[in-house]
Write a protein that binds this DNA or RNA. Structure first.
Lengths: 248, 248
DNA sequence: GCAAATTTGTCCGTATGTATC
DNA sequence: AGATACATACGGACAAATTTG
């Protein structure tokens, strides 16, 4: 019968009534805050949430879908609902779709994206060369070796080593946001780039060389040289994107 | 009666079957891509999507909720569903909730956030001072005047002028991603900061002074001085966050 | 290994609120 | 104001996945 609750009567006298599902979203968020839950902690079952928040299962489920998209909750079929990892997966989804969407601006998205990563690393140059430990520098050098080996054989491990290299580079900053943003941008790049014919495996040698130069600069604790090496590394990437753009 | 489609039989032989709603999500995204739709363009009605994608209303609606959270689709009650603005609203939601969540790390989130904005502006210093036009510099100076007026009277217009100032600062870069990220971070800061007692209106005078110094540096096209002015501007912000953190 | 219990996934039918013409 | 088209919300039923006895 769709019995109706008297929503909008008591609370917020004349405020534009927001959908019930949105109230449920806020209710679930408030529940997590109130109980100080963290990633992985269990949430009430759907029927329990229905009763607690005074909404039907449909509304509760739609609210859960919204929160799932934001990685605030995570659902395991047949098992239960839990607090999510609070990652930036939504950002990856958004940017990826935007990159695939516009037939012309997609190259601009890629270019912007690479530029931001460069700004992160160049802007933090002095702090990076200062705070990287000897063992971490050793691991960076090891990753360059991995790139050499992967470049000779298959191109698969190459991008992984490249990614690990840059992840390790910004790790010592202690700024999780930069790390996660950079990681998200990398995800987007890897997903979108193949659709734009940007990948050309001929440039691997140059990429390896510039990474080696970065390692050498870190070893020497030379921030200026470090920034210069980064510029040398990113310039051809942007150039390749520009070339692919011109090709259309 | 819940008549069942034979999902999982024909497609992807042994791949782990994903929920139907996820297929609907991909189907709607594919529809947008295939028809090269842009923000504001209309999408089929819910019943139409049900028939086109072979799913019930529930599944279609849950898929729409996911895409709405990502700002890929937008729904107007009683009117229809449309392609969304593809903004970074999901990022704001995610970061805001994360900031409110952890009782200790929230300050870290705020600190990281401000640091990223500083890196954007300092990392682009030379390009900013080079590409800002005379009229834009004039507008920057006008915004500083606005801050002076707002500071004397009410604190409301102050943050707006401050925001407009920084938005205008990075606008000439032509990097939409930086602009939208910076804007998103500002949103998060404004939402979360009041919960942490970071706002202390005593520092408005110093803020105005450092903004004036930024304008002067831009006028002189002096990138080094510009970067120094930015450092002077952001240092006290981070200091305030650190103080609020220590207060707990 | 099987069966029961729990929980989420999907479907349908219906009623209501909202915007447009 | 009425009619129409659409999204919102409800409730019940069954399917599928997971855990447990």
């Amino acid at each position: 019968m769709g019995q109706k609750a008297i929503r909008g009567a008591a609370p917020e006298a004349k405020a534009a009534r927001q959908p019930l599902r949105q109230e449920v979203v806020e209710g679930i968020k408030a529940y997590i805050l109130r109980n100080e839950l963290g990633p992985g902690d269990p949430l009430p079952t759907e029927p329990a949430l229905c009763e607690a928040l005074g909404a039907s299962r449909s509304s509760v489920r739609e609210a859960i879908r919204i929160l799932t998209a934001l990685d605030i909750v995570e659902v395991r079929h047949g098992h239960g609902t839990y607090v999510g990892r609070l990652s930036l997966s939504a950002l990856v989804e958004s940017l990826t779709f935007r990159g695939l969407l516009s037939p012309d601006d997609d190259f601009q998205v890629m270019s912007d994206l690479v530029e931001v990563r460069e700004v992160f690393e160049r802007g933090m140059a002095d702090r990076i060369v200062r705070s990287l430990g000897e063992d971490q520098i050793q691991r960076l050098a090891g990753l360059v070796d991995d790139m050499r080996r992967a470049g000779a054989g298959e191109g698969h491990g190459f991008v992984e080593a490249d990614r690990a290299f840059h992840t390790l580079l910004i790790a010592p900053l202690g700024n999780d946001l930069i790390g996660q943003l950079s990681s998200a941008f990398w995800d987007v790049y890897v997903i979108v780039a193949p659709h734009l014919d940007v990948f050309t495996h001929e440039h691997e040698a140059a990429t390896i060389a510039s990474h080696q130069r970065i390692v050498d600069a870190v070893r020497a604790r030379d921030a200026a040289e470090f920034a210069a090496a980064l510029a040398e590394h990113y310039a051809p990437v942007r150039k390749r994107i520009a070339e692919a753009r011109a090709r259309r």
